[in-house]
Design a protein around this nucleic acid. Structure first.
Ligand SMILES: [Mn+2]
Ligand SMILES: [Mn+2]
Ligand SMILES: [Zn+2]
Ligand SMILES: [Zn+2]
Lengths: 136, 136
DNA sequence: ATATTTATCGATAATGATTCTCTGTTTTGA
DNA sequence: TCAAAACAGAGAATCATTATCGATAAATAT
């Protein structure tokens, strides 16, 4: 991630490093607000706008994946910055990766059938996770 | 659609009928704003709030499907009010149904593997449609 | 038919995530 | 050493959606 920024002549500021650290250190798909709260622990004067600017930059260089689950705020995955399916619990709102399903074939089949040049996808399954099922 | 509303003791007002008519008569996945513009042709004093309230109602009784494509405004499908995949052109923004792929098996496989009780999904493929490819 | 209750409407304010703007600071490179 | 460019911070602006609330229309009871 750091290398990718250096390659493209972007500056490595403390604020950016802090955002990178949160993203790289979490597989919980944090929101911008959540990243902001975490970054403020070490850099209390950081602005929320800076978080958004950093996320926009990371999106552009394909180092972070933006996930919209219709929850009115987006989530970010810095661990797997390529399209992949997610599994969201409607009860506890946890978001996990659903790597066990491979949709590249589906995507290829769709492209062949329709003539579309498919460049991206966003796939979210919603339900109740095993833990929340127990909590009836 | 009308029957479903009657069954559940909702009133059939002219405004609601107008919204239903737009939804039933279009497979273009219109936005709330677009529905609003269309409804205003026949009922010029209709409020945008009424459109949203009607859409919320139709969502609740499962007569319309809400689609979020990360475009900052939602789209609605009254023709196929159950989860199904979509194909979105990044150039002309057209949204079409991608019925040729069946994801019920994927969903079942995922449920079995993870223990989730899957109740819904939202699947969007993004790309360039054949028409926009020609326009290069 | 008239009164009463209740759902729905229209207008507009509020909300809240994200983006924009502007100013001051830091980094870069000659 | 110094000008140019990149970046950060603060807060205003945007804009889709929701909430509020008094007015109106439909349903129901008298
Ligand atoms: Mn992920
Ligand atoms: Mn559809
Ligand atoms: Zn859960
Ligand atoms: Zn197109």
């Amino acid at each position: 991630m750091i290398d990718k920024l250096k390659e493209q002549d972007y500056r490595l500021t403390p604020q950016r490093l802090a955002v990178l650290k949160i993203l790289a250190g979490s597989d919980a798909h944090p929101s911008a607000e959540h990243i902001y709260e975490q970054v403020k622990v070490d850099f209390p004067m950081t602005s929320l706008a800076t978080i958004y600017k950093t996320l926009t930059l990371l999106k552009e260089i394909k180092e972070v994946l933006e996930i919209s689950i219709g929850d009115d705020h987006n989530h970010y995955d810095g661990r797997r910055p390529y399209p992949h399916p997610h599994l969201i619990c409607n009860a506890c709102k946890k978001i996990i990766d659903a790597d066990m399903v491979d949709l590249s074939k589906v995507s290829q089949h769709l492209a062949k059938k329709t003539g579309y040049r498919i460049t991206n996808y966003q796939i979210n399954f919603f339900g109740i996770c095993p833990l929340c099922q127990k909590k009836v």
